[in-house]
Each structure stands twice: as C-alpha cells, then as structure tokens.
C-alpha cells in the first residue's frame, strides 16, 4: 500500500488517480497511525511552506520513524520543500530538516510563479529517474525552490533564471519540485519507478 499523506493541503485526486494508473495500491491517509503499514509514503503539498508545516506537524513523528526505517518516500512540490530546514517564504517556520539547506525564492526578473513545462538536466542517474533523459519536460508550479547544502543530493535541475533544484535523492527519499502526477507519460514513469522501488 502506498500512503498519500492527507494533511489538508490541496486536492489529492490527481496523485491518487496517477498512482492507481501505474498499478499501485494508493490510500489517502488522514491519521499518522495509517502510515505504519505503508510500503511507500507520498508527501504531496500545495500552498505555503509555513501552513503546510503547521498541518504536517502531527505526522512528523510517524514520518520520521518511517524515514529512519527506510520506507521509500516521495515528496512532491511543497512536499519536497518541507524536507528542507527552512524557507524564505515563512522565516521562522521549521521544516522537517531531512535535507540540510534552505528553500529560497526564484530570482527577480523571471515569471513568478514558474508555471508550465520545463526540461530537466539529469545530475545523477538515480533509480527513480529510470527512463527519464536530459531534456524531458515536466510540469512545474512554484515560486520557491530548495537549495541543499550538500549538492550531491541533487538528482536533476531545471533552468528558470537560475539553476533550480528539480529533484533530490537521498537514501530512501526522493522528491520532485515538479508534479509527476501532472506531467503526462514521463511523470507516470517516475511514479512507476517509485512503486517498483517500494516492492524491492
């Protein structure tokens, strides 16, 4: 079972339907205890960093435990940003801190939010990017992006005024700034990779 954490931020239909499409057994989980039986956990997210963290805080203990136990995890969009320590969007709000570094605003002079299809540059051939190649396009909607202290966790980047972290990979954790559930066949491929990973 793939648990999709429902912490009240945004509609989860898309990711639920996309997981169904790739043959997973998704379940929208509203209770932290529901994460215990999960073979994989998806942290979705829309909205602002601070309010996401407020809502997510009741899941923090369970999520950390699952992360430490090696359960495959997938963060999407704000669900990627909350993995960092903090964000310029809401100074003072604390993230999960599983990835060292800060979430910063896209530079002035480019369209903010970045909204649309942008191409990836693969930095590291991780399992989660099987079947994905340089130049493949994914759907982004965001105004901030994560800047990890240890740049070796970056799996892929995109270009929007600056080099923007598009995906990070660390141990059992994978996260994308783009929305794989809105990125057509290539996006579904990433979800398929994740599901395969949970079955190893």
């Amino acid at each position: 079972m793939i648990a999709i954490v429902n912490y009240g931020m945004g509609n989860l239909f898309s990711i639920y339907n996309a997981m169904n499409r790739v043959g997973a057994d998704p379940k929208i989980v509203i209770d932290p205890d529901g994460l215990k039986e999960a073979d994989g956990i998806v942290i979705p997210g829309v909205g602002a960093f601070g309010s996401c963290m407020d809502q997510l805080s009741r899941f923090e203990g369970s999520l950390t435990q699952s992360f430490d136990e090696g359960v495959p995890m997938l963060g999407i969009c704000i669900g990627m940003q909350v993995l960092f320590e903090e964000s310029e969007e809401n100074p003072g709000a604390r993230g999960l801190g599983w990835i060292k570094g800060k979430v910063v605003r896209l530079p002035e002079g480019v369209m903010i939010p970045q909204m649309g299809w942008n191409s990836l540059t693969i930095k590291r051939p991780v399992e989660m990017l099987d079947g994905i190649y340089d130049g493949d396009m994914f759907y982004f909607v965001h105004s901030y992006y994560g800047r990890p202290t240890d740049r070796s966790v970056i799996a892929a980047t995109t270009e929007h005024g600056v080099e923007v972290t598009a995906a990070v990979a660390k141990d059992n954790l994978f996260a994308t700034q783009f929305h794989p559930e809105k990125s057509g066949a290539k996006g579904l491929r990433i979800l398929e990779n994740f599901v395969r990973f949970t079955r190893c």
Binding site: F13, S14, N17, A18, N20, R21, Y139, E181, K182, S183, G184, A185, G187, L188
Partner: peptide, 8 residues
C-alpha cells in the same frame, strides 16, 4: 477525466 488524464 482526471482518472486518466495527467496534465493540468
């Protein structure tokens, strides 16, 4: 539609 269409 959203059961089988994965774009915005």
């Amino acid at each position: 539609t959203s059961e089988s269409v994965f774009v915005p």
